[in-house]
Design a protein around this nucleic acid. Structure first.
Lengths: 144, 144
DNA sequence: TATTGTTATACTCTATAACTATA
DNA sequence: TATAGTTATAGAGTATAACAATA
């Protein structure tokens, strides 16, 4: 197939994906700031609102060093959005979980993340399904 | 049309876009690190390799405060990748431009940004064109 | 006076290495 | 001894405010 890595359509798609990434990131930071959170704090809170996690697991999900998570959770805890509790079976492990207020903020945060929803309104249902399938194939096994 | 902001397909697409953004960002940082650059430094160098720019214009493009650009360009200049020169018509303005080595690094950086190219190999030419059109419509006027 | 770039300051995120408490 | 979390440290990005040079 005509799949040179530098064919015009491919380069165009690469540029468009760059634009999507820039816009998504920008709007994510703005949404976080509206709740007086940094991007990293918002990401951790969002993670924990799905499922309480040990510190080390948070670091794995965010692909950063565990030592960084200490400070981020510290600041979320100081705001009353997150709490730590020792795991019953291994007292070395500390599980971070959102408070009721933390869950509420995480929910409002998701609501205000209109980016990928509002512009999707431009597309018909069939087109959105098509886009979904193309993105899925593009991401391939990396979805795990 | 059945365009509720919370219909299942829309939510799925939102999640997929989040995955694309995460992967793109991660790989961008890695590519930058391979050249001993931070993400911000790589972005500025990439911008300047297209066109020399006054400090203030760089800040506008990166959507950050001008005071931040001083340090980023300082570090690129210390590495010999970028130079500053006063604008002839307004000596307040300093135009940053890549050196020959800066241009070479920017070029290699682009080469190593395989993300949105390699996985696009999964798609046929027709599918890539389809993806391009969908992304274009999604981004709408924001492409300016 | 207004604008460009810089400096000074404070905060956050990041990685590395050393430390503690458990296991 | 190994592992989970933390602390200490240093570098980088960010915003804000004040400043110098130029317009």
């Amino acid at each position: 197939m005509a799949t040179s890595r530098t064919d015009p359509v491919t380069l165009e798609v690469v540029e468009l994906i760059g634009a999507v990434v820039a816009r998504y990131y920008e709007e994510y930071e703005q949404a976080a700031a509206q709740h007086a959170l940094t991007g990293a704090q918002a990401r951790v809170l969002g993670l924990l609102s799905l499922e309480p996690l040990p510190m080390r697991r948070i670091a794995q999900k965010l692909k950063c060093e565990p030592s960084n998570i200490t400070g981020i959770v510290d600041r979320l805890e100081a705001r009353g959005l997150v709490g730590r509790r020792p795991a019953p079976d291994d007292r070395r492990v500390k599980v971070a979980a959102p408070t009721d207020e933390g869950r509420a903020v995480a929910h409002r945060l998701r609501e205000s993340l209109d980016f990928a929803r509002e512009p999707l309104g431009e597309l018909t249902g069939v087109e959105r399904a098509l886009l979904r399938d193309l993105l899925k194939r593009m991401l391939g096994e990396a979805l795990a």
